[in-house]
Design a protein around this nucleic acid. Sequence first.
DNA 1: CTTCATCCGAGCGCCCAACCCGGGTCGGGC
DNA 2: GCCCGACCCGGGTTGGGCGCTCGGATGAAG
Lengths: 154, 154
Amino acid sequence: MQVTARIDYAVRALLELASSEAGRVTRDELADAQDIPRRYLESILLQLRREGLVIGQRGATGGYRLGRPADQITMADVSRAVDGPLALVQGQRPEHIQYDGTSRHLGDLWIGLRAAVRSVMESVTLADLLAGDLPTEVQALVNDPDAWRSGTDR
Amino acid sequence: MQVTARIDYAVRALLELASSEAGRVTRDELADAQDIPRRYLESILLQLRREGLVIGQRGATGGYRLGRPADQITMADVSRAVDGPLALVQGQRPEHIQYDGTSRHLGDLWIGLRAAVRSVMESVTLADLLAGDLPTEVQALVNDPDAWRSGTDR
DNA sequence: CTTCATCCGAGCGCCCAACCCGGGTCGGGC
DNA sequence: GCCCGACCCGGGTTGGGCGCTCGGATGAAG
């Protein structure tokens, strides 16, 4: 249950791109603005390009720009582009795992968990994050003071 | 965004324990019933014991039993016991990360995501899973046919 | 005092995350 | 047409964590 550095970096780079809607932005400008290792960021941008989330332009006046409007890029898109499918169990899709005996209903738990993750990741867009204006159902989660406590562990 | 084998194994072993409420169950019996590598399962049981989720008894008639009733052990308890805090970002708790500039509101996303994960993991208990009777809000997620599709990727 | 099962630290292989390099390739400007 | 700038891309390196194993110590029961 970890959010990788890769996703975090990808979202931040895309936010930077979305905010300078006009022209192209180079890899180094993105890296400097968000404090991301340059070469590593490049490998992320490459993946984003293959999924159509950004468009790269070579040459002297080159750089990157968004592949489509910021309000049509969800967090789920970004996550799947750089990290593969959401909420896998042992590297497999939860609906394909066979449980039996006493763990007969365990699959339902993982399906439900994935649905919960999706409900957040598929509803939030780059434009929402830029405006600081998340969908109401996500904002409700964030506003709950309980969401900010550090867990009941340790 | 991966559910590790370790959590999956831990839950399955605990379910097995919960179902044979009466006596103690040995590591090998658990391993055989759920098809989990024996020595590996042992290291998991050790962690569960340190968190009080199971009680180990040594000796000839030894084995494991639950540390408290099955309806008082949540999936969040299990996950935190074997995998540490839920939904970390880059190994840090989301509320401790400082974002600024265009990614000013990114922290809210991770907080919301963690809240969504918690809402499932803290509401489902071992007893629920055994009975196949999940909390209504989780069951609602599972019943949605959309929850079963394999993602819109690739 | 032997047997059985849990306890416990250590260690191994592998893959992936996080990076770095060296070059190829394309586009624009002069 | 040449060169510079920036993306494109395969590979390499390092470190850490996951999945899993081993050998032995400790304790309970017959």
